[in-house]
Write a protein that binds this DNA or RNA. Structure first.
Lengths: 197, 197
DNA sequence: CCATACTAAACGAACGTTAAGTTAATTAAT
DNA sequence: ATTAATTAACTTAACGTTCGTTTAGTATGG
């Protein structure tokens, strides 16, 4: 059925994803995707009716399952403090390795319409967010779980988002881009804050 | 010298900035800027040699002076804890009000080449970052000032970046978009963490 | 009179998209 | 077993549109 030298939808999406991550929707042309895949533009239109559909399929491909994988990290029933440390390590690793994923989340938050934001919330953040809020409520039931979860997730993400700018900032060292160093720091900071009192 | 019904460079930039903030560099055309300003495209080329120069001028317009203003908040010599609380309140207010500024920073961090990242670091983050690291060193000299500063700034920014997605997330309430509520939370979190130990 | 701030009109290049034809693997019939 | 029909996976070539940019000309305040 399928010729040997043929590209599947998944092959196309896998190559389109890093392009969208780096340059955004309007920064990527159908021709640039076709070139990367090694086919003509018309071949893309054989698999997808238009650019928007291709883009949305790419987003879905990146996001679906990612949520579960992030949620699983938090589903264990070990001691809350240890679970937080373990989560931070895993989360930092994921964000560090899958940089495309990280950038696409950010772009979707800025560019996404309501339906795409809902997709992002349900397919990317749901399990992760649920896990973090649960963990927060176990660690400190008196504080607002939503605010805590956003603070924790944002804290981690920002370390990787600012990475390209790090060389130009004061007090920066090479180790500050090491996910393990970041994980240890954010864990410590989340548990104790600036411990001044 | 200048006709009455004429647009200055600053007028053009002021109208171009929100466009770039919302749609990014490649998402905004010279024609869309011209339409917003109420002139023809050629008029834009009378003021700026090309699109890139116009964009860079817009970035500079947004960023310069912003750094100082953010830095000033941190330059007072009141008690560190109070200074942190005061900074959080002011920072949240700025980020909440000037949403374009917030989004442009993010876009520049993702799209910017080396020279633009350096501009971002020196014109936007320098004084702010210096102030926060200083404050952190006063509050807890033992911790790494770089990691702390990134954590604190990122924590705050993320609350406003995730705002459009908030309605679709669990445990969210309307008050979670109030800059004062966010400021109080992040201050408390930065000072005490989850205070479980 | 002269510079400044424009407009009208057009340039080629790149864009998303489509129509028509070609290749190659599978299936059905002889 | 060979061949014919069928289909998915393409290519080539072009469509109209929008893009960044330019050129030539016009109006206006000093």
């Amino acid at each position: 059925m399928r010729p040997l030298n043929t590209k599947s939808k998944e092959d196309i999406l896998a190559l389109a994803i890093p392009l969208f991550a780096r340059s955004g929707y309007s920064g990527v042309s159908m021709r640039s995707i076709a070139q990367k895949v090694g086919v003509t533009v018309a071949a893309l239109y054989h698999h997808f009716p238009d650019k928007q559909t291709l883009y949305l399929a790419a987003m879905t491909q990146v996001f679906v399952d990612k949520d579960e994988r992030l949620g699983e990290i938090l589903s264990s029933s070990i001691e809350p403090k240890k679970r937080l440390a373990q989560f931070m390590t895993s989360f930092c690793e994921v964000v560090d390795k899958d940089n495309d994923f990280c950038m696409l989340i950010q772009r979707e938050m800025m560019d996404g319409d309501e339906s795409r934001l809902r997709l992002l919330a349900t397919e990317v953040y749901h399990d992760l967010f649920q896990g973090v809020t649960n963990l927060c409520q176990e660690l400190d039931p008196k504080q607002d779980p939503y605010l805590l979860a956003i603070s924790i997730i944002g804290m981690v993400m920002y370390h990787f988002q600012t990475a390209p700018m790090r060389p130009y900032l004061a007090h920066s060292k090479e180790q500050h881009s090491d996910p393990q160093v970041i994980a240890r720091h954010v864990t410590n900071f989340a548990l104790q804050g600036l411990k001044t009192g």
